[in-house]
Design a protein around this nucleic acid. Structure first.
Lengths: 155, 155
DNA sequence: ATCAATGCAAATAATTTGCAAAAAG
DNA sequence: CTTTTTGCAAATTATTTGCATTGAT
């Protein structure tokens, strides 16, 4: 998957706006993060970044992750495991939601305008204005129920 | 807040169905959990349960929590802290969502039929059938923005 | 030069677990 | 009696942090 140049540029601008430095280690981390659309863990990010630059340490990964989330380009996700996942797709799809297959754990991301509008309405009716949203739907694969496996939808 | 007898009965039935025992410590924990509508941490639950039965240990709390979530009567929640919260209101409102005030951290729970229906439709369109859902909306209090504090809505 | 960023190794803190003793059914 | 549950204390594990050194600007 090619590097998402636009996202990288935004993050570099974010760092510069806070007078933070673009070190070679951060370079490796940034390039890794914005060259995938997969959810990743801190551990995976460390391994991938090290393939590009052997000098990246675990501490630097853990120190860079909060910068990425603070910039809004990456979002911390909780899927009930005891470690966190990070989703790099908020750069391109700032409002997306997650559908998780309860059978095979595959995660589908989706955007839905009607949903977005409804959430906004509900929020305003309660006296707030919406800032952000996280929706996780857990589902069962229909294919799975009919055929005993969810080849098409879930693998 | 009075004990939610119905929820307690359901959980006791759940334990019996798995031939698990109703010990005095579990009694104290169950009574605590179903006598509040607040989200709580493991640590808080331990403190509260100990007020009822001094012999409850941290280990027992941590061993009982997964039983509560497995029963579906309590749900584990992630609000971005490094410890988990537990929500005892799924017994009475199995589909509720959370609206979090970004200004004062107050959490409002709400049910919405239209939302539920829409989520179901989206899920089916993607080839799944819905099993469960978690929605967290973060908002800004209107009162806050106008008056500089959110007395009515948020405190 | 200056000040932020690094790697390392040690610290932190929530949660889990092994085990021998206690209690439920 | 049998089997589960308990408390305790030690273990686990993701993440954080102090510090002396390095590197970006």
């Amino acid at each position: 998957m090619p590097l998402n140049e636009a996202a990288k540029k935004k993050f570099v601008a974010f760092l510069e706006s806070k007078s933070l430095r673009i070190t070679s280690q951060r370079h490796a981390i940034i390039n890794t993060v914005f060259s995938t659309d997969k959810h990743f863990t801190a551990d995976e990010l460390l391994a991938w970044a090290r393939e590009k630059d052997k000098s990246v340490s675990r501490a630097t990964v853990y120190r860079t992750l909060p910068l990425l989330t603070e910039s809004g380009l990456v979002r911390e996700m909780d899927f009930g495991k005891d470690y966190k996942f990070y989703d790099p797709n908020y750069a391109d799809h700032p409002h997306h939601s997650h559908l998780i297959c309860g059978d095979c754990d595959k995660i589908v991301e989706f955007d839905d305008e009607k949903l977005e509008k409804l959430e906004c309405e509900i929020t305003e009716k309660l006296g707030f204005s919406i800032k952000s949203q996280r929706l996780q739907i857990t589902g069962t694969c229909e294919e799975m129920k009919r055929l005993g496996s969810c080849k098409n939808k879930c693998h």
